[in-house]
């Protein structure tokens, strides 16, 4: 028996919206500790990792671990039927479920929708992501980072991110010319302006902006985003989801030949 009831169903809708351009089908692993999901894009350049802790759910029960293979496109269609204020409940009482039930309830419990989504059996191609002590960590407004990526992607497909003790510099070079945006440490009390840099070792890494622009579809999940980098390592972009868990994106760097 597996049942997970999320009070703010809109969070689940936002998560699916944030990943639907990146991955086509995912395995959600349910266990006693909560839900986790890891999936790569078709080019195996980017990876999304979702962790939702059981204590962030209104009700949560998972008698034994199960894997739920879902088509993101079909999941999206079902979630379109959930209101932003609805609670969302996922449920199955089979051990090897062939489908997953969804219940959407409005606040007054006066409207209850029930859907059943057929499940897929997907071969899990999981990667072992080591816990990394990143040498450069940037916490900043997710809206601001999203804006920087959008603006720079009009000049080049590739951005170089260079950190130093007191600032982070995003640089682009394209056919029309070049540009850079430098953001300094800023302890402002205004969220949108605050920038926290923890730079143990400066890094200079290059990434494809189109993936960063896809990651930034997660801005609605958190007002802040953290960029985690170490030399010769994939970038990890993390959106913490209040009281529930986190949505992380990993992106392999581009290495100048």
């Amino acid at each position: 028996m597996f049942e997970a009831k999320l009070q703010q169903g809109v969070i689940f809708k936002k998560i699916v919206d944030a990943i639907k351009d990146l991955v086509k089908s995912v395995n959600i692993d349910a266990s006693t500790s909560g839900l986790s999901m890891q999936a790569m894009d078709s080019a195996h350049v980017a990876l999304v990792s979702l962790k939702l802790n059981e204590n962030g759910f209104k009700d949560y029960r998972c008698d034994r671990p199960i894997t739920l293979g879902l088509s993101i496109e079909n999941l999206s269609k079902i979630l379109k039927c959930a209101g932003n204020d609805d609670t969302i409940t996922l449920q199955t009482d089979e051990e090897e479920p062939s489908s997953l039930k969804f219940f959407f309830e409005n606040q007054q419990a006066s409207k209850i929708s029930e859907f059943s989504l057929n499940l897929m059996s997907l071969d899990s191609e999981s990667l072992g992501i080591p816990d990394t002590d990143y040498s450069s960590v940037i916490q900043m407004s997710s809206a601001e980072f999203s804006r920087i990526c959008k603006e720079l992607s009009s000049i080049s497909e590739t951005v170089e991110i260079e950190t130093s003790k007191e600032s982070v510099k995003f640089s682009v070079q394209g056919d029309i010319g070049a540009g850079s945006i430098t953001v300094k440490n800023n302890q402002s009390d205004k969220d949108v302006d605050r920038v926290d840099l923890q730079i143990d070792q400066p890094v200079k890494l290059t990434f494809a902006l189109r993936y960063l622009n896809m990651f930034n579809k997660a801005v609605s999940l958190s007002s802040t985003v953290s960029l985690n980098m170490s030399e010769e390592n994939p970038l990890m972009v993390e959106y913490k989801i209040d009281d529930l868990g986190s949505l992380r994106f990993y992106l392999a760097p581009k290495i100048s030949d």
Partner: peptide
Amino acid sequence: IELQKKLREFFPKI
């Protein structure tokens, strides 16, 4: 030119 690396060059398959 910059070559786009793949994640499996950094993370082992499990």
